[in-house]
């Protein structure tokens, strides 16, 4: 655990969570805590259900067993209205950005404000421009989502995610498919937003270098289990061969390069 402090410091507590897709077990009895005000990363190879975990925390999926508490509330026991009230305080950045394609950048950022508040348009304008300025895209407000590059779309989505001043933001693979410059911009943004707005950030990612650079605490998932956890420094010195392979990006190790198959020579010589 990050520390042995009381539960008040944990904005999210996941207890004995199990979840399956079909016959495949995505999570097998995992428990983890996210500390308030910190950047916590959840890492692991593709297909380990990292995005699923965010959807479970956000109440979009139901666990088979175990419970998830966000800010003291059991997410899956809440009534729809209470769940929606909780979600207003959680921002989520989707991998694709999930911008509404029939609106321009300005209206996309204004969307949650218009849906959830009765603020006058002039006030909304001020707020939208502030959020867009924070991500450096105040000048791009008239562009449509299809005119944005991948990195810009993600920054607009980030501006939208902070529009309602949430207590927590969940980032789903924020660095995937970004060029070095937008990657750097995003790394910087996530860190600075977390510190200046007093947020809690959860980053789901498999980009080791970028994530380790800003995360306060890291959980490493594999095959439904937590295989390693600690600060980036602790993980770098982990004695688990698996964690070492993952953190260093080695091609072979406990996770084999080859998908299980019969012997190579036998396979080549066989007639079938």
């Amino acid at each position: 655990m990050p520390n042995s402090a009381s539960a008040h410091n944990h904005i999210v507590t996941v207890k004995n969570l199990s979840f399956s897709r079909g016959t495949r077990k995505i999570f097998d009895d995992i428990s983890l805590d996210i500390e308030r005000g910190k950047i916590t990363a959840i890492m692991g190879p593709s297909g380990t259900g990292k995005t699923t975990l965010l959807k479970l925390i956000g109440g979009q999926l139901y666990p088979e067993a175990g419970q998830i508490r966000v800010d003291g509330q059991n997410v899956h026991r809440l009534k729809t209205k209470e769940l929606y009230n909780l979600r207003k305080r959680i921002g989520m950045l989707f991998q694709s950005g999930a911008l509404l394609t029939d609106m321009n950048v300005y209206d996309n950022v204004a969307f949650p404000l218009r849906e959830h508040t009765h603020l006058p348009e002039t006030m909304i304008r001020t707020l939208v421009l502030m959020k867009l300025h924070a991500v450096g895209l105040r000048g791009a407000r008239h562009l449509m989502p299809n005119e944005l590059s991948g990195g810009m779309a993600r920054r607009v989505a980030l501006a939208r995610a902070i529009a309602l001043d949430p207590m927590m933001i969940m980032y789903d693979e924020p660095f995937t498919g970004q060029d070095p410059i937008s990657m750097g911009a995003l790394v910087h943004l996530i860190k600075s937003l977390n510190n200046t707005l007093g947020l809690t950030s959860i980053i789901v990612s498999h980009d080791v270098q970028e994530t380790a650079a800003i995360a306060d605490y890291i959980y490493v998932l594999s095959e439904g289990k937590i295989v390693g956890q600690g600060t980036p420094q602790q993980l770098a010195q982990s004695d688990s061969a698996w964690v070492q392979q993952f953190m260093n990006g080695d091609a072979d190790g406990p996770v084999h390069f080859h998908y299980p198959a019969i012997d190579y020579l036998d396979d080549l010589l066989s007639t079938k």
């Binding site: 929606y84 979600r87 207003k88 959680i90 989707f94 694709s96 999930a98 911008l99 959830h116």
Partner: peptide, 21 residues
């Protein structure tokens, strides 16, 4: 396509009911 591009899911996470909206 809105479903495929996570727009509906994104709306749900913004506490906007995609059915109503």
């Amino acid at each position: 396509l809105m479903k495929a591009t996570e727009q509906l899911s994104g709306m749900e996470m913004m506490a906007v009911n995609p059915i109503n909206r």
